[in-house]
């Protein structure tokens, strides 16, 4: 059996959305500045909000550009607006508005954006580019929680942080509960889920679930592979990435997003500038998604994109082979 970090207790699948909803309610009760900005795409715990604080719900309709700028103005006046929608809408559709009317002045606006390769709704809504187009924006913190506990803690941290934050709520199969209740979450800090000397999987979001499943398969083959959970996609935890390179010398990144502009590229840049190590990036290759049902028995998209634990095992072994080749050359 693999030995996991102190704050790891792997459980059943639970929707991260529950954690987000819980933290938002608790935050709103504590902090009267928090406003729910709706773009006709619902809101976590919308019934509770309607019943308990209707005056703090700002419905802007399907007009994300106006919504983003109005939120910027509300933040300029001291409120803490939380905009909920698909990431392609609340940030993507309003990208220039977010830049010009929120980030330039570092207004305290929070985004919760639903995004990921999975879903029945198809190519329009199963988007994978959000992390890429958001990471280039200055002043924006990006969080991508991996399970229900981290989702709750990340939402709480987002509301306490002063400045613009994007929290990505992934469209994916339901991730398993990984963290214990006393898991210490800090913006910008990665967490060692498991240490390992042969290779390290740096995982974010749902892919942590697949990474954990991959560990057992790898152990059966006698490989000691670590997992570093990277919730904050910007700013990346540079120290932890260098540590991963020192410990194992082979890095596999795993993300439910395009491998261009996402976690993989960020990690590659850190390694290249500090302590280069062979890498394999697991994620969505340069292509769009499509419709696909998610059931425990059948998940065509997971197979199509190569995001299963089995696929991770292949990538880890490929990465270890690269490391060996480098050693032989020396």
């Amino acid at each position: 059996m693999a030995t996991y970090g102190k704050h790891i207790q792997i459980g059943e699948p639970v929707l991260p959305a529950k954690g987000i909803e819980k933290a938002l309610k608790a935050g709103a009760l504590k902090d009267p500045r928090i406003l729910a900005v709706l773009e006709d795409m619902g809101f976590p715990g919308i019934d509770w909000w309607t019943e308990n604080m209707p005056e703090r719900m700002v419905e802007v309709g399907i007009a994300e550009q106006n919504g983003a700028v109005v939120a910027g103005a509300l933040a300029a006046e001291g409120f803490v607006p939380v905009i909920y929608s698909f990431l392609f809408a609340n940030v993507g559709r309003a990208l220039n508005q977010v830049r010009q009317s929120i980030l330039v002045d570092r207004f305290n606006v929070k985004f919760i954006g639903r995004e990921g390769a999975w879903g029945e709704v198809g190519i329009s809504h199963n988007t994978i580019e959000g992390v890429g187009f958001s990471r280039v924006l200055p002043n924006l913190v990006i969080l991508n929680p991996s399970d229900v506990v981290e989702a709750e803690k990340a939402t709480e941290a987002m509301l306490q942080y002063h400045g613009p934050v994007l929290l990505r709520q992934e469209s994916s199969p339901t991730p398993v509960r990984v963290f214990t209740d006393d898991y210490p979450f800090n913006i910008g800090k990665a967490y060692w889920v498991k240490e390992g000397s042969d290779a390290t999987i740096i995982a974010t979001g749902y892919m942590l679930t697949e990474a954990i499943a991959a560990i057992d398969l790898l152990e059966a083959e006698g490989l000691d592979v670590g997992i570093l959970n990277m919730c904050t996609l910007k700013p990346l935890d540079v120290g932890a990435i260098i540590e991963a390179s020192e410990r194992s010398g082979a890095i596999v990144t795993a993300e439910n997003a395009s491998i261009i502009g996402g976690l993989g590229e960020g990690v590659a840049a850190v390694l290249a500038e500090n302590l280069p190590a062979p890498m394999v990036r697991v994620g969505i290759e340069d292509e769009f998604s499509q419709s696909g049902l998610i059931t425990p028995e059948r998940d065509d998209l997971k197979i199509h994109f190569g995001l299963r634990a089995e696929d991770l095992v292949v990538s880890v072994k490929e990465c270890i082979a690269k490391k060996e080749r480098l050693r032989c050359r020396d």
């Binding site: 550009q65 109005v70 103005a73 300029a76 006046e77 409120f79 010009q100």
Partner: peptide, 14 residues
């Protein structure tokens, strides 16, 4: 094209 949204946001904040 963004200023009116911002002014409206500040008016709503009032």
């Amino acid at each position: 094209g963004q200023g009116l949204s911002f002014a409206a946001g500040m008016a709503y904040a009032e």
